[in-house]
């Protein structure tokens, strides 16, 4: 598809599907906020100011302050950077590794495919969040390990997805034609099959991003993620939960809302992408 045709199609789908376009706008806003976060607020997310502790939202502190007087909004924005980075890195890792392993299995078949399939089955037999907890606990509470754990628990889905998509195309005429044109197996998988599978996988990527954010926040919530005082949505919700009974709702409201919006937005975006890539929409 030509670049202009692709743009026209994307615009058509966005126009026909208001919810997806709203999600796309929101996603751009959220990512921009995360990237330019420090420039948007005058407060340092780590600087405590006990004199102004536990203040409800007002004109100075839009989302209030926490028990140490830190600006909640500044912390939510800073936390977004970290959570998005973790999710993006984890999804990227599982996508790249999963696509290559799954692509190779789907193309080759045979014993390798069977063995990889069984290993994937074993991975998927674990409750995934519990597996992530175990991995972080074993490897140590560091950002790299949260990324690794999240990537590993997502890997089976990417392997299966890539394997299935490649396997249905393996017999296609253009794959035979590529072989007749002198392309080796490596080039056929990387240069022909995976680019054709990529659009379908982008749906998985978008749905997965929301899930990975939730996973990173979840790990921190139960104390297996990054350490305080680093701002992180899971930690903020966990800390704020103690104050909710005494009426200081804004401590959890802001990070909770950010988390909910992010996950919702990436899920809706995934649905929109699926519509955009559905060949039945192309008439």
């Amino acid at each position: 598809m030509s670049a202009s045709g692709q743009t026209a199609h994307a615009l058509y789908v966005l126009r026909a599907n208001r919810i997806s376009s709203a999600a796309a706008v929101l996603a751009v806003l959220l990512v921009l906020t995360a990237v330019f976060g420090p420039m948007l607020t005058q407060y340092d997310p780590l600087a405590s100011d006990v004199a102004h502790a536990l203040q409800p939202p007002d004109a100075n502190h839009w989302a209030g302050t926490d028990q140490l007087g830190r600006d909640v909004l500044a912390r939510v924005i800073a936390a977004g950077r970290l959570d998005y980075a973790i999710a993006a890195a984890a999804v990227f890792l599982s996508f790249v590794i999963g696509a290559v392993i799954g692509g190779a299995c789907g193309f080759r078949g045979g014993a390798v495919d069977r063995w990889v399939g069984r290993i994937v089955d074993v991975l998927m037999a674990f409750p995934l969040f519990v597996l992530a907890m175990a991995l972080v606990a074993a490897l140590g509470n560091r950002v790299e390990n949260i990324v690794t754990a999240t990537a590993i628990i997502n890997l089976p889905f990417y392997i299966r997805f890539a394997r299935a998509e490649v396997a249905v195309r393996r017999q296609a005429g253009w794959v035979e034609a590529a072989s007749a044109s002198g392309n080796g197996p490596m080039r056929i998988v990387l240069g022909f099959l995976l680019p054709n599978v990529l659009p379908a996988m982008s749906v998985q990527i978008s749905l997965n991003l929301g899930w990975a954010i939730l996973n990173a926040a979840g790990l921190s919530f139960i104390g297996l993620g990054v350490h305080p005082p680093t701002p992180e949505w899971g930690i903020m919700v966990a800390e704020g939960a103690r104050f909710i009974t005494v009426g200081h709702w804004w401590l959890v409201a802001a990070p909770g809302l950010a988390l909910m919006l992010s996950v919702l937005c990436f899920n809706l975006l995934g649905d929109g992408l699926r519509d955009m890539l559905d060949p039945r929409m192309r008439t």
Partner: peptide, 26 residues
């Protein structure tokens, strides 16, 4: 599976039944 690097690969070529299906959509 190894014929793609044989010197005769260029000497034997094929035109497929379904022209549309034999072209990489990308």
């Amino acid at each position: 599976c190894d014929f793609y690097r044989a010197p005769q690969r260029r000497d034997v070529q094929i035109v497929f039944q379904d022209a549309g299906e034999s072209l990489n959509p990308r």
